[in-house]
Design a protein around this nucleic acid. Structure first.
Lengths: 218, 218
DNA sequence: CCTTTCCGGGAAGAGAAGTTCACAGATGCG
DNA sequence: CGCATCTGTGAACTTCTCTTCCCGGAAAGG
């Protein structure tokens, strides 16, 4: 198995080299650069699985880089590293899409732990599964079913007629048809008392739909 | 339009009432309770669009409540409120799925701003379900078309017959049909000399498919 | 009790999606 | 030139999805 590629972005050469060394020793393939501006073209050459980015840098800061990275490389994990950590800064970084936040100075173990954890989450993301894929996508191809999912996500749990009316569909049996389809695909359940709600599966799929919608419109 | 329902969870009665008052004045419909344990059944009765939850509470803490809320009400936004804010705590909250993090004491304006922002993000997520989404998903629902995308992503650029043979499809006109479909949806192009390749759009969508696949299998 | 609303099954048909066939221009090759 | 391959088009046909209509039982409400 090929080693993961990591990218370290930090304008402080000493610290950068030190991080690179720690990660290289641990068996990762490590790239590095000194500015956010240099990072983007580098990523387009060799797509990293994980980026460690400093917050305070001359030119574009690490914070501004995060959305750009997320846009071009959605599967890449991002850990923000910072010398002057504040609660507001940490919250802002996580909101932007960072997966973790590391305050300098950190110990070797902290760094490795954060890196390992982020990469594991990513691997978890990467697995494939074709047979159900077909059914799930066929299920999602229908707009009414997507609306049902969205409505259920919105309201948490609903009865049959609530759903029907909420969608503004006159013929309730049409809704039955799609509900059955969604149930068969395990995206919704009807646990007790006929109440419909999303399955965890359904929630995940819906998340994905939002992501897809953003990509399409961008 | 119905006012949004907010839920305030805080064991400090004074602060809770004060928050409720501020939010009620601003036109929201506000529920409140004193413990995380009481919050869940309350949510099942009236699903809130936004929850403000205190971190330190007797019994289950706010941090533990977040994943539970996320699970049952994926579309509900969560703002964590805390008296003893630390970077680590903020990062942990955001990792758990909080959408924002507010340190006590906060001013009225800060609170309202955070609430307004979270609700706006939520509305933004909620839309986006309609425009080209339908076509894109209809396009992806077909397995052959997904295979074509994957093959093209793999090989970069291919001629018509290469694709056909690579898929092991005897009838080449069937492939033509799907290629036309993909072209119409702007996922592939035929730039020069009849050579097919992915569009940037197509690449993004394929990324998304991987993401979806992983969500399904998990 | 009767009536209404809720929740759903199942069949028939409209309509969309996918497949196959028949054919044809372009290109290259001996 | 004669033949084969590449790259399609268009129409007919099949298959599947979706909608619509008719029906019925269960619960609620008066």
């Amino acid at each position: 198995m090929a080693p993961e590629t990591l990218l370290v972005i930090d304008d402080d050469a000493d610290l950068r080299e030190s991080i690179v060394e720690i990660l290289t020793e641990s068996g990762y393939r490590v790239l590095a650069c000194a500015t956010a501006e240099a990072a983007l073209p580098l990523c387009h050459e060799v797509v990293p699985q994980l980026v460690l980015v400093d917050n305070m840098m001359p030119g574009m800061g690490g914070m501004a880089l995060i959305p750009l990275l997320k846009k071009d490389f959605p599967a890449t994990r991002i850990i923000m590293v910072t010398a002057f950590s504040t609660v507001d800064n940490a919250v802002a970084a996580m909101k932007s899409g960072a997966d973790d936040y590391l305050a300098k100075p950190f110990r070797r173990g902290e760094l490795l732990m954060a890196v390992k954890r982020a990469l594991e989450l990513r691997r978890f993301d990467r697995q494939h599964c074709d047979p159900e894929m077909d059914e799930a996508l066929a299920c999602l191809a229908n707009q009414i079913r997507r609306e049902i999912l969205a409505t259920l996500a919105d309201r948490g749990e609903m009865r049959f007629m609530d759903i029907t009316r909420s969608l503004g569909i006159a013929d309730h049996t049409k809704v039955v048809f799609h509900l059955k389809n969604l149930k068969a695909n395990n995206l919704i359940t009807q646990n007790r008392e006929k109440i419909y709600r999303l399955t965890p599966q359904g929630k995940k799929i819906l998340d994905c739909l939002h992501l897809l919608a953003k990509k399409i419109s961008s």
